[in-house]
């Protein structure tokens, strides 16, 4: 139930579905290759661009960077756009809020922003390593994969959820589920 001026999640989701389809159609027409929503390859390319500043030979020789091609591309701009779009949307209904520790986190780990920073950083390292091994994240595998009825998407999303649900339960503890 939305009480803070947000949109109905079904409605926003339907619009994302339309956006995904229109994006594939437009990129097929204009670029000759359909672009599907995704995010995690961008982090490989961005990491490669950053490493090029200090060790360009190392990046040039790395097999994975060669495979994914270190450059600014459609998807990297998409991820940057997500940041801008979310910022814009939060200004339209005054929901922009500077937050250093999320309330649910502080209920478990306390209000230290450094503790949260460490948790977020470690979680980010693990999540991206896993996403690259799986070949995608909840956008690329989950949304784009399932939309195309790809078996890889169903398996990957299923495993994202199994891992996530188990660890969330370990961290935040079991509780009475509202639906039982």
């Amino acid at each position: 139930m939305q009480t803070d001026g947000g949109w109905n999640p079904y409605f926003a989701g339907i619009l994302v579905g339309i956006l995904a389809v229109v994006s594939v159609l437009v990129t097929t027409q204009l670029l000759g290759k359909g672009q599907y929503l995704g995010a995690s390859t961008t982090f490989v390319r961005a990491a490669g661009l950053a490493e090029q500043k200090v060790a360009p030979e190392r990046v040039a020789q790395n097999e994975y960077f060669q495979k994914e091609k270190v450059k600014i591309d459609w998807q990297m701009m998409l991820v940057f756009g997500i940041f801008l779009g979310a910022f814009g949307a939060s200004l339209t209904d005054k929901s922009y809020k500077k937050e250093t520790v999320p309330p649910m986190w502080s209920g478990r780990f306390g209000t230290s922003p450094w503790c949260r920073a460490l948790g977020a950083f470690v979680g980010g390292v693990i999540a991206m390593f896993g996403a690259r091994m799986a070949g995608g994240c909840p956008s690329g595998h989950g949304m784009s994969g399932l939309m195309q009825l790809s078996v890889s998407g169903f398996i990957a999303l299923g495993c994202f959820l199994i891992g996530g649900i188990i660890v969330a339960r370990l961290i935040y503890g079991g509780r009475e589920y509202p639906w039982i």
Partner: peptide, 30 residues
Amino acid sequence: IGGLIFGIGWAILGYCPGTAAGALGEGRVH
């Protein structure tokens, strides 16, 4: 294996790659 590892990180961080960029946009600086 990659999916399970991702899930572990997701539950610790609280965001997936795309939503982390978006969350920063709406002021969640962490």
